[in-house]
């Protein structure tokens, strides 16, 4: 079954025809060719596909495309302001928040969602906010540090 959906993504309005059984992850990676969000499992376990939907972080592999109608989506591509990197991105670069980097877009998205709720999170709050994002390289310590430093640098 086809659906005509309209939504905003990274600040741009978008109209698209999608199928009932497509996922948000398929739409952004295949149809919109935004490949920042990654596929890691399809079971909601890894968070590599994380995006922000109406202000909240969700696993894009667990959202159906027609559900996206009327929503506001932010992917990692929408984090930076043109050429200017988001403070989180800068901090991940400066503090080794990336090893292989496959988890990084999802981590950034989770961090962004956290910082929009809690401007100066404690280490414990950051750990809790990241439990849905697996990093096989084990870069958690530096990811947490990157987020902490970025949150302190803001204002």
């Amino acid at each position: 079954m086809k659906h005509h959906i309209s939504f905003t993504i990274n600040g741009q309005s978008m109209e698209l025809t999608v199928l009932s059984h497509q996922t948000l992850l398929e739409v952004i990676r295949n149809d919109l060719r935004l490949t920042g969000a990654k596929h890691g499992c399809s079971t909601g376990e890894c968070g590599a596909c994380s995006v922000i939907m109406n202000g909240e972080v969700v696993n894009a592999c667990m959202v159906l495309a027609p559900e996206v109608d009327g929503t506001d989506i932010l992917t990692v591509e929408g984090l930076s302001d043109g050429e200017e990197l988001h403070p989180l991105q800068k901090s991940f670069i400066d503090h080794h928040g990336v090893q292989c980097g496959y988890c990084a877009p999802g981590m950034l998205i989770s961090a962004k969602a956290l910082l929009s709720r809690t401007s100066r999170p404690h280490e414990e709050e950051i750990r809790e906010a990241l439990v849905g994002n697996l990093c096989r390289c084990g870069a958690y310590a530096d990811i947490i540090k990157s987020i902490q430093v970025a949150s302190r640098a803001r204002r």
Binding site: M1, H3, L19, S20, H21, Q22, T23, L25, E26, R29, N30, H39, S42, L64, P66, E67
Partner: peptide
Amino acid sequence: METRDLKPFHYIRP
């Protein structure tokens, strides 16, 4: 490219 892994169904929002 992401592989479509859900079998077809109709999504309806009553």
